[in-house]
Design a protein around this nucleic acid. Structure first.
Lengths: 184, 184
DNA sequence: CACATTTATGTGCATGACGCATACATATCG
DNA sequence: CGATATGTATGCGTCATGCACATAAATGTG
């Protein structure tokens, strides 16, 4: 089958959806550029994450992540807390204001996408959901990658989460292989 | 129907596809950031476009578009030509090197997306293509918006183009309405 | 034709985000 | 205890961006 047209349409569509997300979340925050919104979503999704993890999830250098946290902290969105297990590490937690911005960003993102898909029938929605889930499971390639893939996810709406499911499935396959090897 | 999960999956998937595109095209150019790649694709897709149109397509300010063209011109990717119809306007054309980079970016983008969708069956590909086309036609909202939506499109692979089709369909509906009004 | 307005592009300047190299504190290993 | 690795923070230069403004050409008005 010739998949060139599908590749192109999917690419163009994805860029457009990403634009919609950016437009929606841009208004949700004062001076809300893409990186701060992604960071707030990331911390909201991974409370207590460290600065290093934030850098991985957002593909930033360590200095970049530190400076981003500086800005978010100055804006009252994110709070640095010393970790009790590791004296070097810093845990990131949303302030109340940050949590409000988090929910705001998610709901604006959802409404932007809702405008886009309201042309689909129930059946088409179900089909697209199935296809998106399959593609996401196929895209998963390890924990670090998941941090990045899920950086703008709404974990309440993402139930069951295909990335988690794929993670568990790969673990189960690994365990089965190990058990077979032990028995054989 | 509850569409929250679909909204979320589509959003996460789109961000991931956009990442794939960015990753693919980033390597295709020396120092290839997102804006230069988008600009080369834009000029490749709209040869002879003006700086103002580039700015609209990439959502840049006018100074931003001018500076971007400065960089691309210095890199030997894009050539400024004075317009013959308008003494103020500048036409943008890809150089031979720019055209090579254009094709390179498109093929890398395609292969990145190909990796993602090779998990789908032929039937699923056809279904997804149909859904993507429907969503894109619904997303179209006028010529300026089309410049932006199509900024990373591969016009060879995009045949028939759903954005053009929607544009023509809206024109046809408009003409039909006018004809009816004239007759009625 | 003279003059004001709009349009398309270019420039001085300040800001801000980023990465590299480096420094410091803490954890871990031998 | 010393050596190395890890997590975080900072000085510095670079670069992209937008605002305000300037220039040139097209268009509209009397």
């Amino acid at each position: 089958m010739d998949t060139q047209r599908l590749q192109n349409l999917l690419g163009v569509l994805s860029v457009h959806v990403t634009d919609q997300i950016a437009n929606g979340t841009l208004d949700a925050l004062p001076e809300g550029l893409s990186a701060p919104v992604a960071a707030i979503t990331f911390v909201g999704h991974n409370p207590g994450a460290t600065i290093a993890e934030l850098g991985i999830g957002l593909s930033l250098s360590h200095p970049g992540a530190v400076r981003l946290v500086d800005r978010l902290s100055a804006a009252g969105m994110v709070e640095r807390r010393p970790s009790k297990e590791d004296g070097r590490a810093v845990e990131l937690w949303l302030t109340q204001q940050g949590d409000t911005a988090y929910g705001d960003a998610l709901s604006r993102r959802a409404s932007g996408i809702a405008d886009l898909i309201n042309v689909l029938s129930s059946d088409e929605c179900a089909t697209l959901e199935h296809l998106a889930e399959k593609l996401l499971r196929h895209a998963y390639s390890g924990h670090h990658h998941a941090l990045r893939i899920c950086r703008l996810c709404d974990d309440v709406a993402c139930d069951p989460c295909p990335i988690e499911a794929e993670h568990d499935a790969q673990l189960a396959r690994l365990n089965a292989t190990l058990t077979n090897a032990a028995q054989g």
